[in-house]
């Protein structure tokens, strides 16, 4: 996974091609935004304006929807996204301590991306792997049954 911060024309063309496959635009804003985030990696103002124009709705409406749902992000994620499960099962098995350790190692907070673009931290609701609690996912790899002292070793793998 690389940092998709560049808003290239190719990407806009890809999005446009996708939107053309949807015959009736009514009610399809969230579907289009899912696709857009898949292409760009995040939804900055430029992309939201573009979607609004193409869908023939106001930018305010697009922003309203983007800011409402936690899945949509307006900031680019890091090269390695560290997603920590903050569901109840992980919480009672010590997710807070794990999160503290991740913050200490990376120097960033939940929802932030490190200055070098290497890491970002995302808080997840429930991964559904409660048997492995507490759980952290780096990119798509799942690390379970964690203790705080294991965090440094895991993050070092990605430096």
């Amino acid at each position: 996974m690389s940092v998709k911060t560049d808003l290239t024309e190719t990407k806009f063309n890809e999005l446009e091609a996708y939107m053309e496959t949807i015959p009736v635009k009514k009610g399809e804003l969230i579907r289009v935004l899912h696709k857009a985030q898949g292409i760009f990696g995040y939804l900055p103002e430029e992309v939201q304006k573009y979607v609004a124009k193409k869908m023939n709705v106001s930018t305010a409406k697009v922003f309203g929807v983007v800011s409402f749902y936690s899945y949509f992000t307006m900031k680019p994620k890091g090269e390695h996204d560290i997603a920590i499960c903050l569901g109840t099962a992980c919480y009672v098995r010590g997710a807070e301590k794990i999160l503290d350790a991740i913050k200490r190692e990376t120097g960033i907070e939940v929802g932030e991306t490190s200055a070098d673009g290497k890491f970002s931290i995302t808080g997840l609701r429930c991964v559904g792997a409660c048997g492995l609690a507490p759980v952290v996912m780096v990119n798509d790899k799942v690390y379970g049954r964690l203790t705080a002292d294991m965090i440094k070793g895991i993050i070092d793998n990605y430096r």
Binding site: I30, H34, R125
Partner: peptide
């Protein structure tokens, strides 16, 4: 299929329906 986008309130059926219509849930 219609994809949700992460909002707990969308478990409420009227909110869910608004979300399916592409609106804020």
């Amino acid at each position: 299929l219609t994809y949700g986008a992460g909002a707990f309130v969308c478990g409420e059926e009227t909110a869910l329906i608004h979300s399916m219509e592409g609106e804020r849930g």
